[in-house]
Design a protein around this nucleic acid. Structure first.
Length: 867
RNA sequence: GGUCCCAUAGCUCAGUUGGCUAGAGCACUUGGUCGACAACCAAGGGGUCACUGGUUCAAGUCCAGUUGGGACCACCA
């Protein structure tokens, strides 16, 4: 037996197993061709991502599920991969290029720039996957996917063309969020709103007929150059007479109409709203309703265009300043108020987003959404915790068309080509310039330069990773998948869309259970963010406490997806538990004689008891994991190991092992080995290490999962009685300050002495007694302290220790407590309604409890009298 | 404005269809280093379960409302 260190050395163990697992390929799917499959697709992190606590939690939970199912004999596939993350990645590489060589992507040109992005991806894109390996994630690394792999690109093409052919894709001018720096449309999910101190400017717009003016309030003065109307509420008395009149738009000197529109809040500002249909989502709709023209005043880079007249060429901020100055000079600036605004900032460029009209590609969503809606009611899809189902359904029921085009370079270029008349056609295969247009026959002149929104590839993830659109064996075998774990923020961005795509392209829901995990917050309950600098780095936690400790802690903190307030010191719980487990194993390995290997597990009370407790723990872990109650599962394991196995069985076994009790050794080996298997999904490194140390064959990860057998109720009840007795003696010793090394004598007055005396050695050892006697008539020594336990009484002879006054006080308090408890049950039973309406077994139990309570009161009185 | 979640020991949180003398980890108090483990062991103190009302024989648990905190959707001129 090699020397085992006193504390568990996580770092060394992890360094040993991580490469070994990878090389041996134990996690590869397909090794059990006859087994049922269980599949889980990793939510692909962005290639630019570095592991954060959210990833750590999410992947810990997935790994627990995969490992648990793998041990149940299933052919498991946990497929890893990354997302090309269009904007994020392009921005990272652009920044890098500019920093290193002061070149922009425009200097390089599209083709050259993309080479740089690929080079970056090859070099740094695998970081997060490496970090997952170091957490012990049991992914099938041989199937690692990337959303821009050849296969996945083909899937994107095929899906696009299929939707195109169904008429679900259209191109149109719509209002989009425009990032002036990236010069691309961006999605709602790519915007951060930032609360900021701003202003509300009040501008006077004179009536065309010279009869005064109407005042409008705005947070974005420069947009007035694109105003094509002023809206008021139809019921607003102040403006009723003016609706239909024109005002002269200052600076631009255009007449624009006053229109009545329900959407106007009469209480805000002046009750009159300037309408800029080309640069505001709400105004766009108002403009549509009233037939107002749209005037786009911005170039794609955010500078003002020719429509802005004298302001042409100015950047937005300068234009704003100048408009205000000019309005003031014209005497049309009424006032400026402070106003908190929520400024939409682009996630990536951190510049303000402008709502802007532009030509974009859209997917019609309504028809796609219906099967995803039905999936919930027909039971194809379960979202856990269940309350998130509503979030999912609310979005789908109000789904809006999806803007899938982005004016970026990094991503899947839209597979649409145009002929010389600009007639578009979608094609799965590249068309070459000069090829005939499949429909018009005219030569193709160009491909659409836009790329697709990143979600247009990730919504195919559950099957594009398996080879679709090709009919691969993997696709047939592993689709649909069983489980998806993800965060609530992408329920509709990703989960809902995957469900839509699953039904649309394969006619089946892509997964059965979706688990929405907690958000990890800092110790004060704030979101962890880069800007606050309050994030806890999982790698630092692994370094400090170990990967298993981190995983176990995260699992035990995961309760029904409730958010988790996390502080680094919380990981001590996991670390301490790993160390406890380690030391229990160390004890077994060093104290159990080798002959025990050939012995059968013991049949004494404690043996039967610990085996029964092991069954209980197995059941509890199974039950917890079945219902995605990770806390329950981890907690059951924790308390079984710590309380039952270490505190009681191990202590009880010491004396037996000293006498070379082989069945006891066999029991220890059996329980420990089984516990190691139960631990494996949560703490794979320690489990692997102990599995090997205990002589296990084959990888720990593919051992069979323990099957819970029947409990031994009799052994559990009997042991509980002994534990109570031992605790009572320890308590009396402690209260009376008996030296820990001093042995005292105890007597138990009981009608059922046999089970106690049968375990005399155990009780004496654990309660530190020189002698114990039990029987219906044992006498209570004058110098003893008493504890009443159910039907028994225990006396501990404390000659030389006991402080009679203190003992009397304690007993008096206990008596009071017991009396009031008895009284409360008595009252309950005196209630006719309780007796007649409560379930009979509840009443019966209360009667029993009353008997016990009265008995206890009587005994305590006796004891007190004798003191 | 709409939807949802949360409030239990000093702290962080469990508490499954109502039956509870309300639990855990940390912190705290007392004592302890006998060959697994001081990242430990033994024992202990600590809670009118946010508030008000209701349903019920019975409410931490169900219902309504109030207060306080948080998330999301819509709006934000």
């Amino acid at each position: 037996m090699p020397e085992l260190p006193k504390t568990y050395d996580a770092k060394a163990v992890e360094a040993k197993w991580t490469p070994q697992w990878e090389e041996s390929g134990v996690f590869a799917a397909g090794q059990r061709p006859d087994a049922e499959t269980w599949t889980c697709m990793i939510p692909p992190p962005n290639v630019t991502d570095r592991l954060h606590m959210g990833h750590a939690l999410n992947n810990t939970l997935q790994d627990i599920m995969v490992r648990w199912h793998r041990m149940q004999g299933m052919d498991t596939l946990w497929l890893p991969g990354t997302d090309h993350a269009g904007i994020a990645t392009q921005a990272v590489v652009e920044r890098k290029l500019y920093k290193e060589s002061k070149v922009t992507r425009h200097d390089l040109g599209r083709e050259e720039f993309l080479k740089h992005v690929w080079a970056w991806k090859e070099e740094s894109g695998g970081t997060i996957l490496q970090q997952l390996r170091e957490m012990g994630c049991s992914c099938d690394w041989s199937r690692t996917a990337f959303t821009m792999d050849e296969n996945l690109t083909r899937a994107v093409r095929t899906s696009f063309v299929k939707l195109w052919e169904k008429g679900l894709i259209y191109r149109g001018a719509r209002m989009v969020n425009w990032d002036c720096q990236l010069q691309s449309a961006i999605g709602d999910d790519e915007i951060d709103e930032k609360e900021q101190a701003g202003h509300l400017w009040y501008f006077r717009y004179p009536y065309e007929d010279g009869s005064g003016h109407v005042t409008v309030a705005t947070t974005r003065p420069e947009t007035m150059l694109g105003d094509t109307g002023v809206a008021v509420h139809p019921e607003d008395e102040r403006f009723r007479d003016h609706v239909g009149k024109n005002v002269m738009l200052p600076l631009a000197n255009r007449p624009i109409p006053i229109v009545a529109d329900d959407s106007v809040d009469p209480a805000f500002g002046t009750g009159a709203v300037k309408v800029t249909p080309a640069h505001d989502f709400a105004d766009y709709e108002r403009g549509e309703r009233h037939g107002l023209p749209m005037i786009n005043i911005l170039h794609k880079d955010g500078t003002l265009n020719a429509e802005a007249g004298a302001y042409e060429g100015l950047p937005r901020e300068k234009a704003r300043k100048k408009v205000v100055e000019d309005m003031e000079a014209a005497g049309l600036l009424e006032k400026i108020e402070d106003h908190t605004i929520r400024l939409p900032l682009s996630d990536r460029s951190k510049t303000p987003v402008e709502p802007m009209m532009s030509e974009q590609w859209f997917v019609k969503m309504k028809d796609l959404a219906q099967p995803a809606i039905d999936a919930v009611s027909n039971g194809d899809l379960n979202i856990r915790p269940e309350r998130w189902t509503k979030v999912y359904l609310d979005w789908l029921l109000n789904v809006r068309d999806w803007c899938i085009s982005r004016q970026l370079w990094w991503g899947h270029q839209i597979p649409v080509w145009y002929d010389e008349d600009d007639t578009p056609v979608a094609s799965e295969h590249d068309l070459q310039i000069g090829d005939p247009h499949p429909e018009t026959g005219k030569p193709i002149v160009r491909q659409d330069s836009d790329v697709l929104d990143t979600w247009a590839s990730s919504w195919l993830w559950p099957f594009s990773t398996l080879g679709w659109p090709r009919k691969t064996d993997d696709l047939a075998r592993y689709y649909p998948t069983q489980f998806l774990a993800t965060g609530r923020d992408i329920i509709y961005l990703w989960v809902a869309r995957m469900v839509m795509a699953g039904y649309e392209f394969l006619g089946a829901c892509p997964f059965r259970d979706v688990y929405i995990h907690a958000n990890i917050l800092d110790a004060q309950g704030r979101k962890m963010s880069k800007s606050l600098g309050n994030g806890i780095d999982p790698r630092a936690m692994i370094e400090q406490y170990g990967a298993d400790a981190m995983r176990f802690t995260l699992a035990i903190l995961t309760t029904e997806g409730q958010d988790v307030k996390l502080a680094p010191t919380k990981f001590e719980l996991g670390r301490n538990f790993m160390n406890k487990m380690w030391n229990a194993a160390r004890f077994v390995l060093t104290s159990v004689p080798s002959e025990a290997e050939n012995a059968r597990p013991g049949t004494t009370l404690t043996d039967r008891w610990i085996l029964s407790r092991l069954q209980a723990a197995t059941e509890a872990v199974d039950h917890g994991l079945t219902h995605f109650r990770f806390h329950d599962a981890a907690n059951a394991l924790y308390h079984f190991v710590w309380d039952d196995f270490c505190d009681w069985y191990l202590e009880a076994s010491k004396e037996r092992l000293a006498a070379r009790d082989l069945p006891c050794g066999a029991t220890l080996l059996h329980v420990l080995r089984t516990t190691v298997r139960l631990l494996q999904p949560f703490a794979p490194y320690l489990a692997a290490e102990l599995h090997t140390a205990l002589g296990g064959e084959g990888p720990a990860a593919t051992q069979s999962w323990p099957k819970a057998a029947a409990r031994d109720e009799a052994a559990e009840a009997e042991m509980a009685r002994l534990q109570e007795l031992i605790r009572a003696v320890r308590k009396l010793r402690n209260e009376n300050r008996v030296q820990p090394t001093a042995e005292v004598e105890a007597m138990v007055r009981t009608d059922d002495p046999a089970p106690i005396m049968a375990q005399e050695a155990l009780v004496r050892r654990l309660a530190k007694l020189s002698n114990i006697s039990a029987g219906p008539a044992v006498a209570r020594p004058q110098t003893s302290a008493t504890e009443v336990l159910g039907a028994d009484e225990v006396y501990v002879d404390l000659a030389g220790f006991i402080d009679l006054d203190a003992e009397r006080d304690r007993k008096r308090k206990e008596l009071e407590k017991a009396e009031s408890f008895a009284a409360s049950i008595d009252k309950k039973l005196a209630n006719e309604n309780f007796v007649s309406r409560a379930k009979p077994e509840v009443v019966a139990r209360e009667r029993e409890r009353l008997e016990e309570a009265r008995d206890k009161v009587r005994r305590l009185r006796e004891a007190l009298e004798q003191l």
